[in-house]
Structures are given as C-alpha cells and as structure tokens.
Amino acid sequence: MAQIVVYGIITGAFYGLAAVGLSLVFGVMRHMNIAHGSFLMIGGFAAYWLFHLLKLDPFVSIPLVMVILFAIGAALYKGLFSHLDKLPEGLKINNSMLVGFGLTWVIDNLAIMFWTSDVRAVTPSYTGKVWHVLPGLRLPVVGLVIIGIASLVIFSLYLTLTRTYFGKSVRATAQDRDAGNLMGINVERTYLIFFALSAALAGIAGVVAAVNYSVYPTVGFEWLLKAIIILVLAGFGKIGQVFAAGLLLGIIEGVSVYFVGATYREVVGLVIFILVLLRRST
C-alpha cells in the first residue's frame, strides 16, 4: 500500500504541474485555454528532440524548454487570445475555449505532420533506477526528481505571486482589472507575460511527462482532461490547492488501480469530477 501511495504522489506531482498553468490563467485572466494540453505536448517533444539530437539531459533541458514555450505562449496570446480580453467574462470564457479547441486541432495535427504519430519517450540512463529505502518500498529516481521539481515550482510561484510587484499586479488585475490599470499597471503586458509563463509551466510538465510516461501528438488532450478535473477539485487560481488536488487525484487513481484494476483508472477520476460538479451546483 505504501508503494501505491508513493507512485500516487509522483503521478500527483505531475498532475499538479500540468494543471497549475491552466488554473492560474483561468483564475486571473478568465481564459479557459483548452490548448494547454497541447502546450504540454510541445514541451514533451522539445525535451525528446533535445535529448535525441543534442544529448541534453531532459531535466537540464527544462530552462530551454521553458523559454521555447514562453515564446510560443506569448505569440499565441498576442495573436489570438488577447483579442478576447475586451469581452465580458462569460463570453470571454466561452470564446477562449473555442479558440483553444481550434488551436489544439492545429497544433496536434502539425505535430503529426512533422513528428509522425509515433509514441516516444525520453530515456536517460537513470530511467527505471530505484532506491530501496525499506524492504518492499522502492523510490524511483525519476519520481523523486519530479517531486523535487514540483515543489520548487510551487514554492517559486508562491513567492512570485506574494512577494514581487509583478505577482501583486497579477493578483490585483485578477480582482479588478480597471482598478489595476488605474494603479499604473500595464494590464495588456502583464497578461501577455502571465499567459506566456503559464505556457512555460506547461513546458515543465511536458518534460516530466516525456520522461515518466510518453509523448505523442494527441496526448495533450488526455492531460488536459486531468488538469480540468483538478481545476474543478481545487477551485481556481490557488496554487497550493491545485497541487493538493493533483496529489489527491494521483493517490486516489493509484489506490483505485489496486481495487478496481488499471482499466477503470481513468473512470475513477471522471467519477470524482462529476461528483464534485454535482455538489458544487447545489
């Protein structure tokens, strides 16, 4: 059982990474970016090619992948999502979902075109290595690194949002856009950077996924689904809760495999999703 929980925590740390960017952008900017999963996929492929072509260790390549995704995120925000910012909240959410869906189609199909639909994984020398800490308890090295990265990300995001002027301006504009503007905050620029940052976070999750699981052009949608379940579990925009919900989902899925078998693993998450939605609506 302890072993199942360990794997659950590792999966959960990845889920948290996958969901945090989506949640922040929705919480602050009211964009429901369906293409977030595709950003993850690009991050995964970036790590894959950097590993295969340049022999770059996937975890070392993270900063580079973040820069790539930051640039892609900035360009897509400027070109597509920023035009929705003038809309009232409800319309903005709906339209950003439509834009995101379209974008997912385009990105995923471009990925198939350029990279084929083969399933790929990044396999550095330490893949599959485990530490036997206690009899019957194995800690995979990759898993520990993932937990470390997730902790680092959540901690630095927390510090950024609470301690820096950028973070404060982000929180302020989330609460009242015009009032933030009247403080001298360049809201458009802040949103651009924030959206790009969220894409960079997707990039980190993508690298993690490519090492711990595998990556292929349409994988983004599966991860998006997990991220949305977590979003509903956690509420919006609170990083701590997002990671807690990620861990919870990871552990519940892990434990459920023990009871209902791996086939129904995906179902468990969706059942939780529906239960939470039913409770929220009352």
């Binding site: 002027y165 404060k168 929180r171 302020a172 609460q175 009032a179």
Partner: peptide, 17 residues
C-alpha cells in the same frame, strides 16, 4: 474599487506601482 482579497498594506503598495 479596492483589491478586496489583498491586505491594506498590499493595496497601498500597488498604489506605488
């Protein structure tokens, strides 16, 4: 139009953005 979920101090800090 204050930032309701931020402290008085943070509201003032944002005034000096």
């Amino acid at each position: 139009r204050l930032f309701p979920e931020m402290s008085v101090f943070e509201n003032l800090e944002l005034g000096a953005f």
